[in-house]
Computed example of a mutant assay.
Amino acid sequence: MSGSFGTAHSEERLAARQELERLTKKYNFLEPDRGNLDDPKIKWRFTKPDYTQANLEYMKGKTKNHPAGSLELVVENLVKRWEMEASHFKDLDQWTTINKERYRAQANGGKDFSAEEVYKIGNYNWLMAGCKKELYDAEKEDFESSHRHFRGAFPAGFPWEVLEVFSGPPTVAFSWRHWAHYTGQYMGSQGAGELLELYGFGVVELDENTKLVSVNIYYKPDQFVEALKGDITPEQMSKGKALVGSGCPFVKSTPTSV
């Protein structure tokens, strides 16, 4: 769920911005809302992120086009903003998406992580905490190393979308899809540009101020790592999509604007 990142040089960012504007106009797309990243009061963990390339990959590969004001889009933007804060804010006190005192995060019914623990280890490590240690040992990784591994695998970004929302606030249940073209390297394994698709389910609890109290994510991390290592095919990794619903990329399957 983490990883709507991307790296690009200035010329590539300009080309990506132009393509974003074309897709926005042609398909009535909306760019993800991650808040005001130009707010001078923000203290960045490293440098201010640029989501231009990541947003383009999201638009090119998404299977849904949730309309403005829909619960699906509200949930999708909340998760994207939460991920941005977790990945890039320097101080936990800056996070606007969580109830810091009550916040808990859990993957696949495993260990409960507090806000302070999540801030320290990063989203990847709590999400991968239940992975077989021979595949990925989250206890031996830190914030920086985990992000380095996965950003190295997906240099153009690792987009994420909500597929369907099954219940509204305060308990929000939804299915989701993560995808990327594996063009980089992961722990010595080189990708060949194959499309990796990761499907799962999420349940989040919101307080009276629409802040996250708990995040519970369900998916198969072992298959994800096995695909990165080349031990299974992309098709084997994404076989769980039948459980949560899927579709072809929106841009490719919709020849006219919506």
Score class of each variant (00 low, 15 high):
E19W: 11
F46Q: 10
K48R: 13
Y27K: 12
D50S: 06
K60N: 07
P32R: 04
Y51M: 05
G69K: 06
K48F: 06
L56A: 08
N28D: 13
T47A: 14
L20G: 08
A68N: 14
K60L: 13
F29C: 03
L37M: 10
P67W: 05
D50Q: 01
N55W: 15
L37D: 06
R13I: 14
K60I: 02
K25F: 10
S70W: 03
M59C: 06
G61E: 00
G69C: 01
Y58W: 10
G61A: 00
R34F: 04
E57Q: 12
T52C: 01
E31F: 07
L30R: 14
K60M: 11
R45C: 03
L23P: 12
L56P: 02
P32M: 06
Q53N: 04
K26L: 14
T63A: 11
L37T: 11
R22F: 15
N28R: 08
R45P: 02
T47H: 14
D33C: 01
H66V: 11
E57L: 11
A16Q: 07
D39K: 00
M59L: 15
T24Y: 07
A15E: 14
P49W: 03
H66L: 05
D50Y: 02
L56W: 06
P40I: 02
G69I: 01
K48T: 07
P40L: 01
M59A: 11
K41N: 14
N36K: 07
K25T: 15
L71E: 08
F29D: 04
R34E: 09
K26D: 14
L20T: 05
T52S: 02
T47M: 12
L14G: 07
L71C: 06
N65S: 10
P49I: 00
R45E: 00
F46L: 13
D33V: 00
F46P: 03
L56T: 01
P32F: 04
D38E: 13
Y27A: 07
P67Q: 09
L14T: 10
N55R: 11
R13Q: 14
W44M: 03
A15H: 15
L23R: 09
M59T: 05
A15G: 12
A68E: 15
A68I: 13
Q18G: 08
D39S: 08
T52G: 00
Y27F: 14
R13C: 12
P49C: 01
P32V: 00
R17T: 13
E21Q: 12
L30T: 09
K26A: 12
A54N: 01
T47D: 08
K60H: 10
E57I: 03
K64D: 02
T24M: 13
Y51Q: 05
K25E: 15
E19L: 12
P32D: 04
K41W: 03
